[in-house]
Nucleic acid binder design. Structure first.
Lengths: 238, 238
DNA sequence: ACCGTATCTCTACGGCGTAGAACGAGTAGA
DNA sequence: TCTACTCGTTCTACGCCGTAGAGATACGGT
């Protein structure tokens, strides 16, 4: 018998690795949603016994945290950008792009931090926080203010994608907005406003809405929290 | 034999009802989290066969939607308030109070709308939307602007509670902030800012943070979207 | 006394996460 | 060359899960 063993009816698999495990998990989630991912199914997809996965993650919840890391790791923040609000805008767009590219991961994105304590999360999920702090303190904000801004900013982003990715369409083959969204079920008496908004709801533009929100938020931050620190020479917008 | 049948070794149960089913489900979630709720466990808690629950909900996901309705139904909006931004402030505080009272329900609150199309959700979960639209159009906003404001507002609220309810503490019996949050695990080189923020992170004040955020958001909305409609005589803050 | 309906129970199926022990191949030391 | 050890993997098994399908029971109206 050959030693390499590269053949086989189901094509023997090359080798297992953390990367292959996690990216396959992400693929399954992208296709079938979080509920559609099981250790057994993932094992099947990798041509391995489910138990072999426990070499790469302590348990299923840890694996989910790692999937979050895999996605959030793609979010790059340029901490050397001297225009902090422009940089945040760029990050916001990148974050939205990620969410739109992986809508089924969004539940994990917003939900895992409620279960896993900060200090135990995969490092990749904490880098955006560290980088934001770096960016903002370099821009002259105090550490405390930097944290406030980070929180408003990512809170806003999470709220935005949760809004944008809401399930609206009930009946895709219908063309009339009201029927498409299934709003005809709502009692006319109780929900007149909502029903009359059907056409508006039906053509939500996420990218535009994000920009509008950013305008408000960044303007608000700029007026409430002028950079106080010494680092560079400020333009003194105030 | 008696007809009432009120006795029994495990004290026969009075009667099942939608309300009892849902409020027991909520209790279990409050105690054990969403993952801790199973149809079988819920049946056990009610002294009934699990299958009897399917008389009150089509399946488990519908039951979860109904739990969201049970919680969100407690959010009252006074659509007759002539000061829309004050009313939103009140609603914001009530929403936060609900989230703090039922932290384990928050994952459902933010996550179920991603799975259930608008038109198929329990009516109680849509009432805050309808009421907000009513409040804002009465205040003179166009329907479209009212929707925009609703979205920024609830997006902000969701972002806020997700921030506030993040799991931070790793080691509760520790007194030093860094160790309490488990941040000593983070490589000093890569996470200097985050580590130095440990004491600040450790005493997060959710209520105060909410007010700060509301200040920014409401001011922003007020400046970006002055009421345009005709209804009442406006105070013309502008 | 009867029936229809609403409520509830029984049984069973296929799937889940993962504990515990065993296995096989590869590597390093003797 | 033999041996000991490690690492990735697999096998088997346990106790959960959601829920389909069919049947039992209780009850309100006639």
């Amino acid at each position: 018998m050959v030693k390499g063993a590269q053949a086989g009816p189901a094509a023997a698999v090359p080798r297992l690795s953390r990367e292959r495990v996690l990216s396959t998990a992400l693929e399954i989630i992208d296709k079938n949603g979080v509920e559609g991912l099981s250790m057994r199914g993932l094992g099947r997809a990798l041509g391995r016994d489910p138990m072999s996965l426990y070499h790469y993650a302590a348990n299923k919840t840890a694996l989910l945290d790692d999937v979050v890391e895999l996605v959030l790791g793609q979010l790059v923040i340029d901490t050397t950008d001297t225009d902090w609000s422009a940089q945040l805008r760029t990050v916001a767009r990148a974050f939205r792009d990620l969410a739109v590219a992986h809508p089924h991961v969004v539940p994990l994105l917003v939900t895992r931090p409620l279960a896993t304590p900060l200090g135990l999360r995969p490092l990749g999920t904490l880098r955006p926080l560290e980088a934001s702090l770096e960016l903002l303190t370099r821009a002259g904000f105090s550490e405390v203010d930097a944290l406030h801004i980070y929180r408003s900013f990512f809170g806003f982003l999470q709220g935005h994608v949760l809004n944008e990715l809401q399930e609206l369409v009930d009946n895709p083959e219908e063309t009339d907005a009201l029927l498409r969204l299934g709003l005809q079920r709502l009692p006319l008496r109780e929900f007149p406003r909502l029903r009359s908004l059907a056409p508006v709801l039906a053509d939500y533009d996420g990218a535009a809405e994000l920009e509008r929100g950013l305008d408000i938020l960044l303007a608000g931050l700029q007026s409430q929290l002028p950079p106080t620190g010494p680092p560079g020479i400020r333009k003194a917008t105030k």
